[in-house]
Each structure stands twice: as structure tokens, then as C-alpha cells.
């Protein structure tokens, strides 16, 4: 069966035509680089995504600190991860790269801060 994929790995967004039997990838073409085939395989067997959101911070010069995952997680777990992140409240200061949740839901991915928040000046 022929299936069309849009690669999301980089902004080229290659349109990849794949020949698929069941869940097996038989062949594919249309990507500008070899990451395309890897992406198609990942999509067939275990589609994964990163999640970017934010967490409340107390006593900071900003209300929120933006966060993301260090590794993509299974697509079906996105909302579970969101719920875990929503439980967190931080106290300033926060630095970029600070681990907010280590190994979230045992998915082999950390939630890290992507901006710094300094302590609110009095």
C-alpha cells in the first residue's frame, strides 16, 4: 500500500512516498536526506513528538518558564506528559537547561527549562 508522509524533522518538510505492507516499510522515496527514511520507519512503528509548554514560577521576573522535552515521547503519551508538567510549580531563579522533571513517566525524557527566570527585584 502506498502512503504519503510529510517529514517533520527539518523545515524542508519533504513529502515522502512510502510503500508499506502491514507495518513493514518496503521502500520509500522523495526525501532530500537519509533522515527521511528513519522518520518514516519511526512513524510506522512508534511515532514520537516533543512537547513544548510552560510552568508557573513564583517570585520571578516572569510568570512562566517555558519548558520542553530532551527526547521525543510516544504520540499517545503527549497529554499524559502535559498533565505531569501542569503539576509543577517552581520558585525563581530558574536557568536554561534546568531539569524540571527527570525521566517523566519513565519515558526516557527529561522536562527542561528553556528560558531563565531571575528573582523578582524588590
Amino acid at each position: 500500500m502506498k502512503k504519503i508522509f510529510t517529514c517533520i524533522i527539518c523545515p524542508n518538510g519533504c513529502e515522502i512516498t512510502a510503500e508499506v505492507e502491514g507495518q513493514e516499510l518496503v521502500s520509500c522515496f522523495g526525501s532530500l536526506c537519509k533522515r527521511g527514511e528513519k522518520y518514516v520507519k519511526q512513524e510506522l512503528y512508534d511515532p514520537r513528538r516533543n512537547v513544548a509548554t510552560s510552568v508557573l514560577v513564583e517570585n520571578g521576573d516572569a510568570l512562566l518558564v517555558s519548558v520542553r522535552l530532551t527526547n521525543a515521547v510516544p504520540k499517545a503519551k503527549i497529554f499524559d506528559v502535559m498533565n505531569e508538567i501542569k503539576k509543577v510549580h517552581l520558585i525563581a531563579p530558574v536557568i536554561i537547561g534546568q531539569v524540571i522533571i527527570r525521566n517523566v513517566l519513565d519515558l526516557n525524557s527529561d522536562v527542561i527549562a528553556t528560558r531563565k527566570v531571575a528573582v523578582k527585584s524588590k
Binding site: N50, A52, S54, R68, I96, T114, R115
Partner: peptide, 25 residues
């Protein structure tokens, strides 16, 4: 970039996918 918290920035320049705040920092 301060408000672009999604990832996908910096692939060409830093060969990694960053959020907007990380890229600008």
C-alpha cells in the same frame, strides 16, 4: 522569539532543535 516556546529553531545554525528563548539567549 521570547514567546515562541515551541522547538524547531537553530537546526541550520546549531544543528539542534531549540525553542525560541534558547536560540535568542
Amino acid at each position: 522569539l521570547r514567546q515562541c516556546i515551541h522547538d524547531g529553531f537553530g537546526l541550520t545554525r546549531f544543528k539542534q532543535t531549540l525553542s525560541g528563548p534558547e536560540y535568542s539567549q
